[in-house]
Amino acid sequence: MTCRDVSRRASTYLDEDLSLRERLALKAHLFICVNCRRYVAQLAATLNLVRDRQWAGVDEEAEDRLAAMFRQSGKSDGGSGFTCT
């Protein structure tokens, strides 16, 4: 397995979707290749960052506007005044 092969499989590897055979071949390559070790670790760090929801957010104005809509929609039973498509 070459570095280029690793770069093609790194993402699937991190998703734990590689076949056993490919996973072992990739691990063997990582054992001897510092560049690929770095690459895979950096890709993993990227995923961790993107998955971290701490940054989740919305500007307050939009949140308030949607909350107002939510309040209003509850005022009348059933017919909310909004059409559902």
């Binding site: 070459t2 570095c3 280029r4 093609r8 510092v34 770095r38």
Partner: peptide
């Protein structure tokens, strides 16, 4: 095709053309 990484970043033998720098700034 399906290559996630630009093929130009590899040499003909499939090795990285330039080293992957560590993320020292972490």
């Amino acid at each position: 095709g399906g290559d996630p990484v630009d093929p130009d970043r590899f040499m003909a033998n499939g090795h990285w053309a330039s080293p992957i720098e560590p993320w020292d700034a972490m």
